[in-house]
Amino acid sequence: MSVIEANHLTKYYGKARGIIDVSFQVEEGEIFGFIGPNGAGKSTTIRLFLSLIYPTSGSATIFGKDCIKYGPELRRDIGYLPSDVFYYERMKVIDLLKYSASFYDRDCTQRMYELAELMELELHRRIEDLSYGNKKKVGIVQGLLHQPKLLFLDEPTAGLDPLMQRKFFQLIREENQRGVTVFFSSHILGEVQRLCNRVGIIKEGRVIEIADIRTLQQNNYKKVRVEAPGLDAAYFDLPGVTNLEFHNSTVRFFYKGDINAVMRKIGELTVSDVTIEEPTLEEIFMHYYE
């Protein structure tokens, strides 16, 4: 059974586009990356799952149940870390966490202190006195203290220093090993590459690709760099070649298709250097957005 299932989800804010006809599934135990630039509709999608907003058309289920009709019940097992963290400014961190815990039936006290210690959170400071990064930590503890089975992380690493990011990733991996399904939205590809099994790529409100991270990297493109004296850029003008760059008798390009065609071309040259490698997710991603 899919943990998340989006069926033709569409959301317009008045006339402004939110997302259009978004459909995908996230399976139990997955870490699903949701990538797109700012304004592509990542937060809109997550907020639809949480019924903070309602779809213009289409529907979504979580744990097999309609996310609007069974919203309150489903949210018992959902943890949510919004992209912008805002809490009641005048409250102390500990009071906010206790307030958060009071919404759940199980006793969250122990887990709350564990997480706070892990994230090095100062519990007796007022929210208004916290830096953005520290508020983000409050968000992380707040989103995890009830041991949810499904996590929505909306650009979770923004504001965290690299050390904290690493701890946070470790934490998410541990949660995942315990069987927690994670929906991870981000515009930073490196972190998605490190953490996720599958990714959905969203552009201008539409999901344009859903793929395994590995297949995305392997099956598609090769990054080719050839250095040869007297080389001319037009030499590699083959079908399947994109992003051709020429500089100082070095040619760089992406290639999709039968690699032998490129090999034969290279074989006819007297090269001084050749590399053929997997593109980074970043490069694949940029390709989608051009």
């Binding site: 907020r47 949480l50 903070l52 949210r75 959902i78 949510y80 805002f86 809490y87």
Partner: peptide, 17 residues
């Protein structure tokens, strides 16, 4: 206004409650 609605409404409660 203070953007705390996301916190409250992501909890397992009905809006009527």
């Amino acid at each position: 206004r203070e953007w705390t609605a996301d916190f409250l409404l992501a909890k397992p409660v009905r809006r009527t409650q």
